[in-house]
């Protein structure tokens, strides 16, 4: 779906706005369009969201639709599930995705499985928004990238917007999804700015953010920006990297991914989550299955280290991919055989 509903005038298409403003606009438009849409979570109302995403929404929509909750993650998600099954379209928020662990039964045993266990009688049309990732030295319990956990769970959709336009359109699409969507917002992106386009492809369509014939950088969320920086660096040396933004892991656009890797013959997967059994492992397997005869070089994975995220700034920064490390790995891949 390119445009879920007719676009009201207030949205600043063509203007440069912050990622968090794009998220706010998406929620606002959907709440205006559909009285069943509610926002529920800790500090989403009066406080305006821990990162300011929902500022002004309580004032516009009132306490019946913007619900500040106690610190009760399992109940927040569970309440959203029940409401979604009985007529509302909840957007539930976890302040940090790390807190999903407190609500994991509701997410993985309930939301993800209800359609299936009950023989397709009912779906759970809800969005679970959460802040993810490193960048603010917030420590081991406020900095994780847990997309693999959700991707691993049949029944959940997983969206990881990297751009302002995707923040807006993917969130609107997620709200319209008939199935639960885990919507992961990278904390280092909230203040990032970009032009809000007047359309974006649907969930499940990967987008090439930069053309290139020598290798494919496969990524999503904040690492997209690191990959683009690395690609600029590489271009100065004559290496042209295609940068592919997956946007959603479920649904996954394997077609576009495979086409790119078949063309370039080389894939470097860049994620911020841990390496072992991480998203990059599944991506690597998928590429190998789809592109084996086309691969010029082994598939490379650059990811977060297999450690909890440390607080100390040099350690935190050193524990996830940087533009420099991406460029170095790409260079080596290209020059592996001289």
């Amino acid at each position: 779906m390119t445009s879920p509903v007719p676009e009201p005038q207030s949205v600043a298409f063509g203007q440069e706005i912050e990622y968090r403003a794009a998220l706010r606009e998406a929620i606002r438009q959907e709440m205006r369009a559909d009285p069943r849409v509610i926002l529920i979570g800790e500090e989403v109302g009066r406080y305006g969201g821990a990162y300011g995403v929902s500022k002004g929404l309580l004032e516009e929509f009132g306490e019946a639709r913007v619900l500040d909750t106690p610190i009760s993650e399992a109940a927040i998600v569970g309440t959203a599930i029940g409401a979604a099954m009985t007529g509302l379209r909840p957007i539930a928020e976890l302040m940090y995705v790390d807190f999903a662990y407190l609500a994991m039964d509701q997410i993985a045993n309930q939301a993800a499985k209800i359609r299936y266990m009950f023989g397709g009688q009912i779906g759970v049309p809800m969005v679970l928004r959460a802040t993810m990732g490193t960048g603010r030295s917030s420590g081991a319990q406020h900095s994780q990238s847990l997309e693999a956990l959700f991707w691993h769970t049949p029944g959940l959709r997983v969206a990881l917007p990297a751009t302002v336009s995707d923040a807006y359109f993917l969130l609107r699409q997620a709200i319209h999804s008939p199935d639960p969507v885990v919507f992961l917002e990278h904390k280092a992106l909230y203040a990032s700015k970009g032009v809000l386009q007047d359309q974006a492809p649907p969930m499940g369509v990967a987008v090439s953010r930069r053309p290139g014939q020598h290798l494919t950088l496969v990524t999503y969320s904040r690492q997209l920006h690191h990959c683009l920086q690395a690609a600029d660096e590489l271009a100065a040396e004559g290496i042209e990297a295609e940068v592919l933004d997956l946007r959603t892991l479920n649904p996954l656009d394997l077609e576009t991914l495979a086409q790119s890797v078949r063309r370039t013959g080389r894939a470097l997967i860049v994620t911020e989550d841990t390496l072992t059994a991480g998203a990059s492992a599944e991506l690597s397997a998928l590429i190998q299955e789809a592109c084996f005869d086309y691969l010029e070089e082994p598939i490379l994975r650059l990811s977060g280290e297999d450690i909890p995220i440390p607080v100390s700034p040099p350690l935190e920064a050193g524990s996830v991919p940087s533009p420099d490390r991406i460029a170095r790995a790409a260079r080596r891949l290209l020059r592996r055989r001289g």
């Binding site: 390496l275 082994p298 490379l300 994975r301 650059l302 990811s303 977060g304 280290e305 297999d306 450690i307 991919p321 490390r325 790995a329 080596r332 891949l333 592996r336």
Partner: peptide
């Protein structure tokens, strides 16, 4: 844990 860089080295030499 094996650092990511070491894993890359194993693949690339």
């Amino acid at each position: 844990p094996v650092p990511v860089e070491e894993r890359l080295n194993r693949v690339l030499g």
